[in-house]
Nucleic acid binder design. Structure first.
Length: 881
RNA sequence: GCCGGGAUGGCGGAAUUGGUAGACGCGCUGGACUCAAAAUCCAGUUUCUGAAAGGAAGUGGGGGUUCGAUUCCCCCUCCCGGCACCA
């Protein structure tokens, strides 16, 4: 065993042992219970970032912990390989996305291996390879025939200069990122997954996901947004024809307060009115400008313009004006809304702006209705009752909705309706680097899905896109084809699928990654699914996780998988953040400087007072602490950390710096602290080995061997063996408890305390030495999932066994925890005033008496009698003066 | 704007879920070792007050419940994630 801790040597050696022994091959047949541990697979962007390191370390810790607990663990890895960045890189470097992607995968795979992850690489999955996406195409054709996939138009961001559809990310302040020109909304045909058909099930099944964080379930439930309301119509006559304008509302009780109706710019009524109204036509044109992102639409200034169309209020018969509003979305609900300024915040603002009438129809007892008071109770569902509402006066929310829905129903103008906020999932993308949609457009047969025997529809891999629409649409050799039904000339669909489709089912593919007879091997899927533990960033809380849950249900309904949910337990990890530094440049721009190139100056109390660039010694501005990103140049390259300190240090720091679900702040000093701890572990191991080389059966030899080192490694001989052993097992108990909570930062704390404790017990003789050996064996096993290389090396070197992964997980010896006397805290009026030692089984009366007799209590009572004494067994006594 | 989180010493964080606030680590200060530095080890380190013993304040801000609140309730501020074509 080397005297000095050299992670480079031991990590490479241990990784070779694992590889040679195929330690992490997951057995399809095993007597042990299975544990499928899945981390969200990476997008192969080029190199690993800290977020990856954090994600995969958490997964590896859980995998190794369960391995040692006796589970048959499967931890697979793969590549979410289709996506927009590959096209951007292709354009920048003139390399086909395929070549760029494959070379990134090659490099990142080496990086993942150097982290020492216990991954079963024989199950690797790459989504841009035909053997993967062919099954996605196969499922598409099944669902298309079933009607779960259908075609309709949808609104996209259109760049009128580059003539291309833009992703929301490519729209900056309403302008195309390359052209700089204002983007427009455009309607194009797309294929949709009918996810709304599963809305109720997706909502209800959240209740069964006890292993998911509440916040994620709440977000998903709100996203699905089930609401109970009323769909009803305003009849109208236009050009001599009778028609109805439909709206949906959850506040039918306010229907008597309607003073106008607002429709989307794309609504047929708006289009009709604009024909004879140039100003309105111009406004509608203006509404087309800007992106489609909901956040932009929700925060933009609410604007509107009247049409000359009037519709009839379904209950009062009054004439109500129709306005066009830029905040009404055609794609949501009916594309039209009733407006009740008195009882809706947005309508109120709109009515004030355009001087539209405000008609109160709800009142809250004891409260005056006025503009000033308005915000307090305008929409009060709980306490409000109808007023100025004729026959509905005095009814509360629920009663009024019932009565109004019944009356609308009787007139044939409406009914109660459950509605979801969730919209169907549009998956067509006008991009090259994605999975081709397996549809053929035939002039006589229409849209025909590609037959099984013609799958996969392969994506050509040698193409460099040019940023002006999909290159596939310019490749006759790709799109020219014959109709599978009539054999006539036809055109292949050139759109590709949303990359969320690939990531919605990869977890199932890992069960049988090489299966070439189906999407999954049903037996293997049944064995491994559901995923026992899924780990990934909180940013995926809604979209990815909802789509994957939806896909699981689709696959279930195809008979491919069993069970209703794909992920039993979910851990959402926080982001990795770092400080930012910059200098102001001309034109308001900023030059972002990497933290590694900056020296921070601190005052006597270690508060940062300024920062200087290392290279020129001149000041830089200290920015905020933000998510590591290229744009803020505050990323720390994990490879540099691994090269300098080793994977174990990187992993240890990641686990120690913050609980897994919270944001993690990068700190160079913290990394050094982690490294220091591992050095101390190593040095202590070397020390123990020295003693063991003497005769460990003999007290004198142990003492002599300890003497060789001059002194024991740390601390003073302050501990009696019984106290030390109790401490060791108390620490272990805490660590085991924290592991069940998946709170790894305190598990690391426990390991540090453990080393401190055993380091303070000098090996003066056999009894002490045996406790130290027990403590070391617990320490190494606690560390093993987190820092596997050093733990394995010391485990073997110190003669505990050949393979620490085969060792059992340490158990608390309850008998070591027992003690005769316990210490109670004494409070007076809830404030700490002293402590009291009592027998562990002392009764309340005795404790009360001793507490009242306590010097500090006497002092604070100042001669008066205690009003009350609260005794919390095993914890404290509170005397109320 | 809507939905979901978060805020505790100079810093990252802990507090077994209503019972000793600040575990563990970083940083800083002092000391040992050294010709010196690094490394390592030892001691101290919430703030104010005090020579000390002690006392007081204190978990983003304001209110409330309780013998007792970082923890529960109400209101507010700031920061972060998501918002359907980034992944």
């Amino acid at each position: 065993m080397q005297q000095n801790y050299s992670p480079k040597d031991i990590e490479a050696a241990v990784q070779q042992q694992w590889e040679a022994a195929q330690t992490f091959r997951a057995a399809d047949t095993s007597d042990k219970p299975k544990y499928y541990c899945l981390s969200m697979f990476p997008y192969p962007s080029g190199k690993l970032h800290m977020g990856h390191v954090r994600n995969y370390t958490i997964g590896d810790v859980l995998s190794r912990y369960h391995h040692m607990k006796g589970y048959n663990v499967m931890q697979p890895m793969g590549w979410d390989a289709f996506g927009l960045p590959a096209e951007n890189a292709a354009m920048a470097n003139n390399v086909p996305p395929a070549a760029w992607t494959y070379s990134n995968i090659e490099y990142m795979k080496q990086q993942l291996k150097s982290l020492g992850l216990g991954v079963d690489w024989s199950r690797e999955v790459t989504t841009c390879k035909p053997d993967y996406y062919r099954w996605e195409q196969w499922l598409f054709t099944k669902l298309f025939k079933k009607g779960v996939i259908y075609k309709k138009t949808a609104t996209v961001n259109w760049d009128p200069v580059d003539n291309t559809v833009l992703a929301n990310e490519q729209v900056i302040d309403g302008r195309g990122w390359r052209s700089g020109v204002q983007v427009e909304k455009r309607e194009i045909p797309m294929y949709f997954f009918r996810i709304t058909q599963y809305a109720d099930e997706l909502l209800q099944d959240l209740d069964g996901l006890s292993g998911w964080p509440e916040q994620v379930k709440t977000m998903q439930a709100n996203w699905i947004g089930k609401s109970y309301g009323v769909r009803f119509a305003f009849p109208y006559e236009l050009d001599g024809k009778q028609d109805k304008l439909w709206v949906y509302t959850t506040r039918a009780d306010t229907i008597m307060g309607v003073t106008f109706v607002a429709v989307a710019a794309e609504h047929p009524l708006a289009t009709h009115a604009a024909k004879t109204n140039p100003a309105l036509a111009a406004f509608i044109e203006e509404c087309k400008h800007g992106g489609v992102a909901e956040a932009d639409i929700a925060t933009m200034e609410k604007k509107g313009m009247p049409t000359d169309i009037m519709v009839t209020h379904p209950l009062t018969g009054e004439q109500v004006p129709v306005w066009v509003g830029n905040y009404v979305l055609m794609s949501y609900g009916e594309g039209a809304v009733m407006a009740v300024p008195a009882h809706d915040e947005r309508d109120f603002g709109f009515a004030k702006k355009y001087c539209l009438p405000i008609k109160q129809s709800i009142a809250v007892k004891g409260q005056e209705f006025s503009d000033a008071a308005w915000q307090e109770w305008y929409g009060d569902k709980e306490n409000g009752v109808c007023v100025n509402s004729g026959k509905y006066d005095g009814l509360n929310h629920a009663q009024a909705v019932d009565a109004i829905a019944a009356d609308l129903n009787a007139k044939g103008l409406g009914e109660k309706k459950v509605q979801f906020r969730l919209r169907d999932w549009g998956i067509s993308r006008q991009r090259y680097w994605g999975c081709p949609i397996p549809i053929i457009h035939c002039p006589s047969c229409g849209d025909v899905s590609v037959p099984d025997d013609q799958l996969p529809v392969k994506l050509p891999e040698n193409v460099v896109p040019d940023g002006a629409g999909s290159p596939l649409a310019k490749m006759p050799e790709f799109y020219e084809c014959t109709c599978p039904q009539c054999g006539g000339k036809a055109r292949r669909e050139t759109d590709t699928m949303d990359t969320f489709v690939e990531s919605s089912w990869y977890y199932a593919r890992y069960a049988s990654p090489q299966c070439d007879t189906g999407m999954v091997d049903k037996v293997a899927a049944q064995k491994w699914l559901p995923v026992d533990q899924y780990i990934g960033g909180i940013e995926h809380a809604i979209l990815h996780l909802l789509y994957a849950r939806f896909f699981h249900k689709l696959m279930r309904d195809e008979g491919l998988v069993q069970g209703n949910e794909p992920f039993k337990n979910l851990l959402t990890q926080g982001m990795v953040v770092a400080p930012t530094f910059y200098r102001d440049l001309e034109g308001g721009k900023k030059l972002w400087i990497n933290p590694a190139d900056v020296d921070v100056e601190v005052d006597a109390k270690a508060r940062p007072v300024g920062a200087k660039l290392k290279s020129d010694g001149l000041p830089v501005v200290i920015g905020g602490t933000e998510k590591m990103s290229k744009s803020k140049n505050n990323g720390v390259d994990p490879q540099a950390i691994i090269d300098e300190y080793g994977a174990d240090t990187a992993r240890l720091f990641m686990m120690f710096a913050a609980p897994p679900d919270q944001q993690l702040e990068w700190s160079d000093a913290g990394v050094e602290g982690s490294f220091r701890f591992l050095k101390r572990v190593w040095n202590f191991g070397a020390f123990i080995q020295q003693i063991k080389k003497a005769n460990p059966q003999c007290d004198e030899d142990i003492q002599k061997a300890a003497g060789i080192y001059g002194k024991h490694i740390m601390g003073s001989p302050s501990h009696y063996p019984k106290v030390a052993r109790r401490e060791i097992h108390l620490i272990l108990r805490q660590a085991n408890y924290d592991l069940t909570k998946q709170q790894f930062n305190t598990v690391v704390s426990a390991a540090m305390k453990l080393l401190n404790t055993i380091g303070e017990l000098p090996p003066h003789g056999k009894e002490h030495f045996e406790i130290i050996l027990e403590g070391v064996s617990i320490l190494l096993r606690l560390l093993s999932p987190i820092t596997p290389h050093i733990a394995q090396t010391l485990w073997k070197e110190l003669g505990y066994g050949d393979n620490i992964l085969a060792a059992s997980w340490p158990q608390v010896d309850e008998s070591a925890l027992e003690q005769d006397e316990i210490e109670l805290v004494i409070q007076v009026n809830g404030k700490l005033r002293g402590s009291l030692r009592v027998a562990k089984d002392a009764d309340k009366a005795t404790i009360e008496q001793s507490a009242l007799a306590h010097e500090a209590v006497q002092k604070h009572l100042n001669g008066a009698a205690a009003k009350k004494v609260v005794v919390v067994p095993g914890r404290l006594v509170n005397v109320v003066a």
